[in-house]
Design a protein around this nucleic acid. Structure first.
Lengths: 164, 164
DNA sequence: GTCATGTGCTTCGAACTCGAAGCATCTGCC
DNA sequence: GGCAGATGCTTCGAGTTCGAAGCACATGAC
């Protein structure tokens, strides 16, 4: 390649390994979710997030952290609603907001696909790792995620995150 | 969520942190590549791979590791060719194969966007890490990637990888 | 040589994603 | 109260992705 451009080869290696490994993992995860529950990774994330939060999130809260565009979320929510996994209704507090609720069917589906999902993650991601490795990976990625979340948007998102 | 299903919470946390961090990183990387070179992450990967390999790879070799479907690769190669960044020609050895070569313009483009690309990776990914952390991350992800690559396809890819 | 099967790539249709534009509501300032 | 700008969500169009089907060549058995 042209030049290292101030990133040590070790770092470049780590970077590419990270990206490729996650890409492979995501691919396998999608396959499992599609096969067992006819869900995409995003749909699963949305349902899981709802299941965690007792249902009742606004669209924006739901999107937060799932990085997706608003329109994409609308689309996915439409699919999930049509499939009977979630419900959308107006918020009593804010007429503009849409409150999303997970249905019983939705919760049941999450519960059904979760074991297989976890199994894929275990066999692909954690199999070659020791307990210490898992700790380190968790620590590293948590720190990195925190760092990224805290960053000022790089020139983007004119309307993305509420500044609290 | 329903149940941990035999994955320790620590592992689940590591898993989700990993997925989210990479998702964020990829998003930013795409933005930079789009802004500075009008490239997608896949296109950049393809060009970088070609630049590394003295050009001259078959479509399948090029796709290998970039996980994409063959048709997607055909599509992307079409775009890159139209943009004058690569050339496609028949292979002398195998009439079926298409040999892909990177052009000067393609190599120049990679060289042009690389510094910015590296800078994004540095500031998002490596900024909160010490040298030791980088070593560990590289080690972990390299092992994980190796593990995943070696796996038997889980029921998929009837025609995906040559078995050497 | 010839036929069956495997492999390399492309074409096709359907599904998904994003950003820009649009509509409705909310908030703050006057 | 009323108006300007911000915010929440949706619609729309263009671009991208994938899997299945299809075509062309290669390889091995006979």
């Amino acid at each position: 390649m042209a030049e290292p451009a101030s990133l040590a080869p070790k770092q470049l290696g780590a970077y590419f390994a990270l990206m490729e490994a996650v890409s492979l993992l995501q691919h396998e995860v999608e396959k499992q979710l599609r096969a067992e529950g006819d869900l995409s990774w995003i749909q699963f994330q949305l349902l899981a997030r709802l299941a965690d939060s007792d249902g009742r999130l606004t669209m924006t809260e739901l999107a937060d952290g799932v990085v997706y565009s608003r329109s994409g979320l609308t689309y996915q929510a439409g699919l999930l609603e049509k499939a009977g996994l979630i419900t959308r209704g107006p918020s009593p507090d804010d007429e503009r907001a849409t409150l999303v609720t997970i249905t019983e069917a939705g919760a049941a589906l999450v519960a059904r696909v979760l074991p297989g999902h976890v199994e894929v993650a275990r066999s692909l991601l954690f199999d070659p790792l020791s307990d210490t490795d898992v700790d380190r990976l968790g620590d590293l990625m948590t720190r990195i995620r925190g760092h990224m979340r805290a960053l000022p948007p790089r020139s983007a998102a004119p309307r993305k995150r509420r500044t609290p």
